[in-house]
């Protein structure tokens, strides 16, 4: 069987060519340019851009702030998303999937239009731009993304495990902490990773809701783009690449949720 197909599948592989060419030009080449620009100045090798960023107090402060704001926002989102996903998946709601869809609907509408709406709401209730406004904006924007993987994991937990621990005399609280929670860790990590990168690199939300004292990483990068400081921008991009790579490593290490259930999207 395999041998028979060999001749035809040789042609078949050619169908991948446009994809590979496209990705080489649009992904591999641009990413290598980041490294080129980060390590060169007017054509010669240098560490100056790295030195400039890593010794610049304000830049480092923004980098640090972006990281902890993203962690804090992700934790808050998790604390809100978990009960929602748990309620939908575990308490026998009749229209669980429809309600889940209601949560994801706003995600299909434009971030900027939603932000205008939120901005209008804030001005109606008199909330000024700043930390609180930024947090609310982040939570409301990324909540649906967190709910999805949690729902997938929770609804896939075999109810027999829960029944078994109940039969063995566990209180409802212990069933949750000893059975449900450990089994949902892959969903927690997947959700965390899915929201973390976009929050670290956000520049629109922080620009519109944070005000000047809550500038984040994405804005810094955007500034270097506007002022055509390609070297500095490349260094910041590489730092962000490293952060992303680390989160992906964590995701791969602890969870196979992405591979098992392609239905996440």
């Amino acid at each position: 069987m395999k041998k028979q197909n060999k001749g035809t599948s040789g042609y078949r592989h050619l169908f991948v060519a446009p994809f590979i060419i496209f990705m080489l030009v649009m992904v591999v080449f641009p990413l290598s340019l980041l490294f080129y620009h980060a390590f060169t100045y007017e054509g010669s090798f240098t560490f100056d851009h790295f030195r400039a960023i890593l010794t610049d107090g304000p830049s480092l402060a923004i980098l640090w702030r972006s990281l902890w704001v993203a962690v804090l926002a992700a934790v808050i989102i998790m604390l809100i998303a978990y009960p929602i996903a748990y309620g939908l998946a575990m308490t026998g709601f009749k229209r669980g999937r429809t309600i889940l869809l209601l949560f994801t609907l706003p995600m299909w509408t434009n971030l900027l239009l939603r932000s205008i709406a939120l901005n209008n709401l804030f001005s109606l209730i008199g909330l000024e731009n700043g930390f609180l406004a930024l947090m609310i904006a982040l939570v409301m924007n990324f909540l649906p993304i967190m709910i999805l993987p949690l729902y997938v994991v929770l609804s896939n937990i075999d109810k027999k495990y829960i029944e078994a621990s109940q039969d063995l005399g566990a209180t409802p609280g212990r069933v949750f902490t000893k059975t449900v929670l450990p089994l949902s860790v892959p969903g927690i990590i997947a959700g965390f990773v899915l929201v973390f990168t976009p929050i670290v690199s956000t520049f629109f939300l922080s620009a519109r809701f944070g005000g000047n004292s809550w500038r984040m990483f994405g804005q810094l990068l955007s500034d270097h783009y506007t002022t055509r400081h390609f070297g500095l921008g490349s260094v910041l991009s590489i730092i962000l690449l490293i952060v992303v790579a680390l989160t992906v490593l964590v995701l791969n290490r602890f969870s196979k949720v992405g591979n098992k259930r392609g239905g996440l999207w």
Partner: peptide, 27 residues
């Protein structure tokens, strides 16, 4: 391998993709 290549722009921070594309188009 091809799937990893495919997922790269999806996983990567959008702002990094944006910036690297600017460099590419400029080059």
């Amino acid at each position: 391998g091809l799937m990893a290549l495919n997922l790269t722009p999806l996983i990567n921070a959008t702002i990094v993709t944006s910036f690297s594309l600017v460099l590419m188009f400029a080059t």
